[in-house]
């Protein structure tokens, strides 16, 4: 007992090395998985799955992303818009393109339609785009990673 009292409160040194090692490993992991891509993805749309939906090599030219929800509304700039009203927004897109001397026909309309939406709505959406002068369309699907 006398010996313990004489030594006073013993200072315990915790070895921080393993913790710091782990922490740096974690940082490295998160740095490498950090994604700066500006790909438009929205949880409100469940894309249909396809084995052949391989990502494109390069970014699309002048992309305009239109997301069709299963209830038939279109997400444009993050806000749900009815299919009837989307024409007005596309008219604005067209005007912006013309103001910077670009033809609407050079733009690529990316159709991100929900797998549960109807083909009629997708075709209506494409038709509205065509009426505004957009000609290039791509249908987006989720890559099936099961094979």
């Amino acid at each position: 007992m006398a010996r313990k009292q004489g030594a006073g409160p013993a200072k315990t040194d915790i070895d921080m090395t393993p913790m710091i090692d782990m922490t740096f490993q974690l940082i490295t992991f998160f740095v490498f998985t950090l994604n700066f891509s500006t790909a438009v993805q929205d949880d409100r749309v469940q894309l249909p799955v396809s084995q052949l939906a391989k990502p494109a090599e390069g970014p699309s030219v002048e992309p305009i992303t239109l997301q069709l929800m299963s209830d038939g509304r279109v997400i444009y700039s993050g806000e749900p818009v009815s299919l009837q009203d989307i024409g007005g927004y596309l008219e604005n897109e067209k005007r912006v393109m013309i103001s910077v001397s670009k033809e609407p026909s050079t733009a690529t309309v990316i159709v991100r339609a929900d797998g549960r939406s109807t083909t009629g709505d997708v075709q209506d959406l494409i038709k509205i785009c065509q009426e505004k002068g957009f000609e290039k369309f791509v249908l987006r699907a989720q890559y099936d990673e099961s094979n």
Partner: peptide
């Protein structure tokens, strides 16, 4: 270091691979 970990954890977003199919829809 913990601040950095927190930042990277919160900005982590799992991107689902997506691909495109071209469709030919010329004007009428």
């Amino acid at each position: 270091v913990f601040q950095l970990i927190t930042f990277f954890m919160l900005t982590l977003k799992t991107v689902i691979t997506e691909g495109d199919f071209d469709i030919r829809m010329p004007l009428g």
